[in-house]
């Protein structure tokens, strides 16, 4: 989609901005009206970025564990009766607006990162679960037959054959969830989660467009980079991809 050079440049500019944001002040000053500060300084941008990434990573990791586990479970013989339920739960999880989940979770979990984690977790389940199902059920029958013929136990077949083959498809699901979570996490700052949304909200409250733009651009660039990273990983892990040709 975007050339490697452009991605490298984006990464370099992002790193430079996070390490020394004040250098970029002249660039953002035209957006800050009435002599307002052009760079958000209440909290370190680098620190907020790391918090943001940690929150997204934790939520996506939880979604991945649950959704892949559920995907494995409902494709085992004898557990098919759970499939319709798992489908319903994951798809309703994504129909629930994340802001609504966030707001409803506040009385249970209080202000802070908890509600955001829950909202991102629920929202991220569907893509990973659907892709795990597609990956595990779409295996060529010849492969699973061969594994059975070799005398592998069901557990061995799962770990050594089915999961490795389904991995690129599962990763594509994780990528979708991660990219969505990255931008959705900003909303968490409306209930006091530490994310880059803090910068954007500060901009909204003080009508300082410079804050809004820097928060938005940092999150957007992170999303592009993470998207590209996952695509690279998927290609490497694809059957017949570079990692196979050792």
């Amino acid at each position: 989609m975007i050339g490697r050079a452009a991605l490298g440049l984006a990464a370099a500019v992002l790193a430079a901005f996070l390490l020394a944001p004040e250098r970029f002040a002249p660039l953002l000053r035209p957006l800050a009206a009435n002599g307002a500060p052009p760079i958000y300084t209440q909290t370190s941008l680098l620190g907020l970025t790391l918090w943001h990434l940690a929150l997204v990573a934790a939520a996506v990791a939880a979604s991945t564990v649950v959704a892949v586990g559920l995907g494995i479970l409902v494709t085992r013989p004898g557990w098919r009766d759970v499939l319709p339920l798992a489908r319903t739960v994951t798809s309703v999880g994504q129909t629930f607006p994340p802001v609504a989940v966030l707001a409803l979770a506040v009385p249970l979990m209080g202000f802070g990162s908890g509600p955001t984690l829950l909202a991102l977790f629920l929202y991220g389940l569907l893509p990973i679960f659907e892709n795990t199902l597609a990956g595990l059920t779409g295996l060529p029958p010849a492969v699973t037959e061969a594994a059975r013929g070799m005398g592998m136990t069901p557990a061995q077949r799962l770990v050594q054959v089915e999961l490795p083959l389904a991995l690129p498809v599962i990763l594509a699901g994780v990528r979708l969830s991660a990219v969505i979570a990255l931008s959705t996490a900003t909303i968490g700052s409306t209930v006091a989660a530490r994310t880059l949304g803090e910068v954007i909200i500060a901009g909204l409250l003080s009508s300082n467009t410079a804050f809004v733009v820097q928060g938005g651009v940092v999150v957007g660039t992170l999303a592009l980079l993470i998207h590209a990273g996952f695509v690279w990983l998927e290609r490497r892990l694809a059957p017949g991809g570079p990692s196979d040709r050792r």
Partner: peptide, 11 residues
């Protein structure tokens, strides 16, 4: 799509 909704609304 990668621009977070809060920021897009704000811009």
């Amino acid at each position: 799509q990668t621009i977070p909704s809060l920021a897009l609304f704000g811009i």
